[in-house]
Every structure is written in structure tokens, then in C-alpha cells.
């Protein structure tokens, strides 16, 4: 996300909102191609991959779910990992509630479309409720459509191959996770980025150290404890830093 800086004068008009939303949708559709392909390589059917994109509709959780399944981690660990990654969507919804003020009947569809991209766009165009809503729904619908089309083409493409491993799809999985992680390591201030790198490296090290001792999938869950520890530790030190 980011990198889109329109002129201030035209920033909030529906045309520029829709154009940005379309661009974001096309870009995430490309993600979805790899999601569909990786799903099939991990043992899901085309319909199962599509079900995840239609109803889970949150990229990192979907990648994690099929990653754990593919590694033989089992259903429970896959579900827990997907939900831990999806927990941030609860916070997105909380901050979007007052911005979008969705009517009761619209809440179910608003919830479905609550993802990184639609949240970022709604909060970026927060100069009016109308602009926020437009940005949220244009981005959410655009991403939803392209995400599902991409998933379908990716899974159909991969299931046409006799052995997806031969194309290096097993290496596409960590590369995909790294690409999802990358903006969180490079997108903040330099001190934030240093913290995120430290957290990422610690978490990776903990997970790797646990691989020989735990069944597949569990090392990743244990790495969540590193985030908990970091939140407690940095919580105590964050006030003096903010006072600088």
C-alpha cells in the first residue's frame, strides 16, 4: 500500500477514489494468483481454495491456513494460526465503526470487506463520511472481485500441472509470506522498523529452534508468544520514547 499521492485538490473526489481502488484490486488479484496456486500445491481442491477466498477473505490468514495444512500441521493448528493473524481485522473494524457508521443491515457485508486495503483507504479519505464510505466499499469490492478471480485462475493453473513442486512452488510460499511481512518491516519510522526487524528475527529464531521438538504448525504458534512479550516489554518503555 502507499505510494499513491494524488494532488490535494482532487484527492477526495469519487473518480480518484475509484481509480485508486481499482489499482489496489488489480494488484491484490496478482497476490491471489499465487494463493490459488499454493493452495492446490498444498493439497486443497479448486473449490476449497475458492471457498477460503469467498468467505475468509483475508490474505495473510488464507496463506497461513494453506501453509500449515501443506506442511502437515493439521486442522486445529491451521485454524488457530489463521485466526491469530485475523485478529487485527477486529481492530480495523473497531476503528472503522465510528468512521463508516454502518447500518445494522449493512454490517454483515461491511465486516466481510474489512481487510488491510479497505481499512487503509477508508482512513486515508477521512475528510468526510461520504468519502470514507466510498473509499471503503470501492476498495473492498474491487479487491474482493479481483481476489476471487485471481484465486480461481491460480488454482486452475496449478491443478493443470502434474507436479507443482517442479516449478518451485514450495519456495513461493515463504517468498509470499516475506512479501506480506515486508511492508511491516520497512513502512514505519526507522526506530519502529528496527523494532519490527528485531521482533521478526526473534520470532523466526524461536520457531526454527522448536521445529525438531513440535509437530508442524506449532512452532509458528509459539512464535506468537514473542509478540506478546514484545508488547509487554515495549509497552513499559513506550511512554518516555513518545515524550522525546
Amino acid at each position: 500500500m502507499g505510494g499513491k499521492r494524488g494532488g490535494r485538490g482532487t484527492d477526495g473526489d469519487t473518480g480518484s477514489i475509484d481509480r485508486n481502488a481499482l489499482g489496489i484490486g488489480i494488484a491484490t488479484g496478482a497476490y491471489a494468483l499465487s494463493f490459488g496456486a499454493i493452495s492446490v500445491a498444498s493439497g486443497l481442491s479448486v473449490l476449497q481454495a475458492q471457498t477460503l477466498s469467498l468467505f475468509m477473505f483475508t490474505g495473510a490468514s488464507q496463506f497461513a491456513f494453506v501453509g500449515v495444512i501443506g506442511a502437515g500441521g493439521g486442522a486445529v493448528i491451521a485454524i488457530v494460526t489463521a485466526m491469530l493473524l485475523g485478529a487485527r481485522n477486529s481492530l480495523y473494524a473497531l476503528s472503522l465503526g465510528p468512521v463508516l457508521s454502518p447500518k445494522r443491515t449493512v454490517i454483515p457485508i461491511t465486516a466481510l470487506l474489512t481487510i488491510d486495503e479497505s481499512t487503509a483507504m477508508a482512513l486515508r479519505y477521512d475528510q468526510s463520511k461520504k468519502a470514507s464510505r466510498r473509499a471503503f466499499f470501492a476498495t473492498g469490492i474491487s479487491v474482493y472481485v479481483f481476489w476471487n478471480i485471481g484465486t480461481l485462475f491460480g488454482s486452475l493453473g496449478a491443478s493443470a500441472l502434474s507436479d507443482p513442486g517442479i516449478l518451485g512452488l514450495d519456495a513461493a510460499i515463504p517468498a509470499g509470506f516475506l512479501a506480506l511481512l515486508w511492508p511491516r518491516l520497512t513502512g514505519g519510522s526507522s526506530s519502529d522498523n528496527r523494532k519490527m526487524w528485531a521482533l521478526a528475527i526473534m520470532s523466526a529464531a524461536v520457531a526454527m529452534a522448536l521445529i525438531p521438538f513440535l509437530r508442524p504448525g506449532l512452532p509458528v504458534l509459539f512464535s506468537a508468544l514473542v509478540a506478546v512479550a514484545a508488547a509487554l516489554l515495549w509497552g513499559k518503555t513506550s511512554r518516555p520514547i513518545e515524550g522525546e
Binding site: L85, F177, L199, A204, A207, P219, S223, A227
Partner: peptide, 20 residues
């Protein structure tokens, strides 16, 4: 704060595990 940090930990761990 914790919800913001969780994805970093989980994604980094997934990168490591899926690589090694």
C-alpha cells in the same frame, strides 16, 4: 499493541519454517 505485533511474529515464523 499486541494485535499490531502478532502478524509480524507469525509471518516471520512462517517464512523461517516454510524455508527450512
Amino acid at each position: 499493541r499486541m494485535t499490531g505485533l502478532l502478524p509480524v511474529s507469525l509471518l516471520a515464523a512462517l517464512v523461517a519454517v516454510q524455508t527450512f
